[in-house]
Amino acid sequence: MKLTGIHVFTIDALLGDVVDVGMTPTGRRRVIPVVGGTVRDGLDGEVLPGGADWNLERVDGSFELWARYELRLADGSVVSVTNTAVHAPAPQLPILTAPRFDVGDEGPVELRTGAYVGLLFPRLEEHRVRVEIHRVEIHGAPEAADA
């Protein structure tokens, strides 16, 4: 069996100013607002303002990303995105993320099921991130289980 990623679409999100919550029992919390952006390369639309990444720099130096935001597609449907990741102090780019989608019946319902991987490319000096969304697919016959 072989796993492959099929590119589905790209999100280019614009970010607002970081809100530094400060040190908490689990690490330094930062909230990074999502203020807009575009969806392209497979789906077309816009990133709606109002979402955020509730980012946590853990005491071991690693980072947790937990972002929630909405996309309005060209056909008017809305897709809610929850995107998570944990990466080392000095991340190798791109950062691998685990996006999940909540879609109404009028939207691209195929996003409701399956496994997806995001390739996140931060461009923080430009106040933006690019996330390339890929659907994971299985190819080939499964191997027999050992008895």
Rank of each mutant, 00 (worst) to 15 (best):
V35M: 01
A88N: 05
V103Y: 01
V131I: 15
V136T: 07
P89A: 10
A147P: 01
I138H: 05
G5N: 07
G61F: 03
V103D: 07
L73S: 08
M1S: 14
D75M: 09
H7E: 13
Q92G: 03
H87R: 14
E57R: 14
L111V: 11
L96M: 12
I6Y: 01
W54C: 07
F101Y: 15
L124R: 05
V129R: 00
R130M: 04
G76I: 06
G104L: 13
L93N: 03
G50A: 06
Y116H: 14
G107A: 09
V129F: 00
N83D: 15
R58F: 02
A144H: 10
L124F: 13
E137N: 04
G51A: 00
E132W: 06
L73K: 12
A74K: 15
F101Q: 05
V18K: 07
V109C: 08
G76T: 04
A88R: 12
H127M: 06
L119A: 14
D20W: 01
V39M: 13
D17Q: 12
L111R: 09
R68A: 09
D75P: 03
V136D: 04
T38W: 04
P142L: 09
T82N: 02
V79Q: 10
R123F: 00
A90C: 04
L48G: 01
P89F: 09
L111M: 11
G16Q: 09
L65M: 15
R72A: 08
A90Y: 07
L119Y: 11
E125L: 13
G140R: 05
W54L: 13
M23D: 11
G42K: 14
Y116A: 09
R28P: 01
A98H: 07
H134L: 15
S62K: 08
T10A: 02
G5W: 04
E125Q: 13
G16E: 08
G114V: 06
G51Q: 00
A147R: 12
I95C: 02
F121Q: 11
L71H: 12
R68F: 05
A144N: 09
L96G: 08
K2M: 13
V103E: 02
E143A: 14
S77Y: 09
E46F: 08
L48C: 02
G114H: 10
G16A: 03
D12E: 11
E125A: 15
E57V: 14
E64G: 04
S62I: 06
L119T: 06
V31K: 02
P33V: 01
G114S: 08
I133N: 11
K2L: 13
D17M: 06
L120W: 02
V136S: 05
Y69V: 00
A88C: 04
I138A: 08
F121H: 14
E64T: 10
A147Y: 05
E143H: 12
P33Q: 10
R130P: 00
A145W: 05
A13H: 03
D17T: 14
L71S: 10
K2V: 13
G37N: 03
V21I: 15
I32V: 15
V39E: 13
G118H: 14
V39S: 12
D53N: 15
R30F: 10
V59W: 06
F63S: 12
P89V: 07
I6M: 02
T10C: 04
A144E: 15
D53H: 06
D53R: 09
R29C: 01
V19T: 12
V47C: 05
A145E: 10
G37D: 00
L48Q: 00
L96E: 10
H87V: 13
M23I: 03
H134D: 08
T26H: 10
D20G: 01
D17E: 15
D53G: 08
